[in-house]
Each structure stands twice: as C-alpha cells, then as structure tokens.
Amino acid sequence: MPLHVPPAPAPALRSVLTALGSPTAVREARTPSLVRAQGPATPELPLPVHVLDQIGPAGAPVTRLAGWRFLIRCGDRAVAAAETMLTPDGWAFSHFFEGPYIASTERALRQAETVQQSYQPRLLSVPGLYMLTLWLHGDTTADAATGHPAATDLLVPLAPAPPGIAAHSPHQVADLLPVLTLRVTPAPLLSA
C-alpha cells in the first residue's frame, strides 16, 4: 500500500529551499556530501518529527512536534537531510545534517511501502535512548502535527538502534512501548 506522506507546512518547505539556494548555508553545514553534490538538490519526503517526552501515568506516550525533516536528494539518492523548527515567527530552517539515519530512513520507508495497510509516516525521537524510529500512524487523514502513537501504530527503529532493539524490525506501539519505558525509567536507588 502506498504511504500517505503528509504535506509539510509551506513556510517550512520555503525555508529549506531558501537554505539550499544559499551557498553560505550549504558551505557552512557539516555535510560534506551536500557540499560535493553534483546537480540540483531537492527536498523530498517531508516527515514530521515528534519527540517522546514521557510515558504518561496510564502508559500513554506523551509526544510533541519538534520540527519537519526533509531528505535532500541529489540525483538518485538522498545525500543529507534538512530540519526545520517552529519559532515564534513561524517555521524556520534549522540545519542540514548527514549520517546513518539518512539511509536508514530511506530503507524503512521502502519497507513500509510493502506493508498491506496504508500508513502516514512520521518520525518519533526517543531522546532518553538516543533512538529514532519511523512511526507509521494508522490514521492517514490525521493532522501530522498532532496526535500520539496509537497502540496499533507501528514503530520501526532506525539504525543505529540501541542495544537489544533490532533496527528495521517493525513493532506495534503496544509491544515496543513497554520496552522503551523500562529503558528510559531510571532504576530505583537501593537503600543501605
């Protein structure tokens, strides 16, 4: 089934296009592959980036929208990504970056396109574990900037994943969330 990629806010896309058109922004970025890229660079596959702030008292994940991420494609491959953030003045370009999450995101999206059910792709960051997942949200008509992972949504950990969590293996939120909760929750102090 096809993925229903949500449209990014127009100001977020404009800010990335402006940054891509700025030789200074591209040159000052720590992205050698973007600097060396031959041909036009285009932002594609906008994905909202949500952050898992905590696990609520009923075990429900508490998330917030942190920005939009665009894969930057030159020719037939993504060479970098651009991140935007919400400021008091609206959406603004934040930074370019590269690294293993670029190829891992592309791989996870290709895998997700082979699943029978339709999903809305998002990214879910778990800062306490230095973990990023592709979040496949079952409500394809939902506002991509809002909402929380539903129990039946899928999370696909991106590589590199934390030890003991297999990258690129899809898990229902109801199955993976307890594992993440145990990992993020600090161990109680033992009294003497």
Rank of each mutant, 00 (worst) to 15 (best):
G21P: 08
A108H: 08
G138I: 03
R107I: 04
P163T: 02
Q117M: 07
L123S: 13
L65I: 08
P160E: 12
G59F: 02
E113R: 15
G99R: 13
Y119F: 15
E113W: 05
G99A: 10
S104W: 01
P61L: 11
R110T: 06
W91E: 15
D53Y: 01
R77F: 00
Q117V: 05
L136E: 04
T152W: 10
V35D: 13
A112W: 07
T63A: 11
F70W: 06
E113D: 12
E28K: 11
A41W: 05
A103D: 15
R107F: 09
S22Y: 02
P163S: 05
A37D: 09
G56Q: 03
T84P: 06
A25V: 02
A112N: 12
P149D: 13
Q38M: 03
L132P: 04
L155I: 09
W135C: 01
P88H: 08
C74R: 02
Q120N: 03
S22P: 00
P57C: 02
L124N: 13
V115A: 14
Q116H: 03
R36K: 10
V62K: 15
P48N: 13
L71F: 07
T87C: 07
H137S: 09
T63D: 01
Q116C: 06
P127T: 08
R110N: 11
I55S: 15
L154D: 09
A78V: 01
V49S: 15
R107Q: 13
Q38I: 03
T105D: 12
P61M: 12
Y119C: 06
P32L: 09
R27S: 09
L155V: 09
F70E: 14
A82W: 09
L45K: 14
E28Q: 13
T84H: 13
L132Y: 02
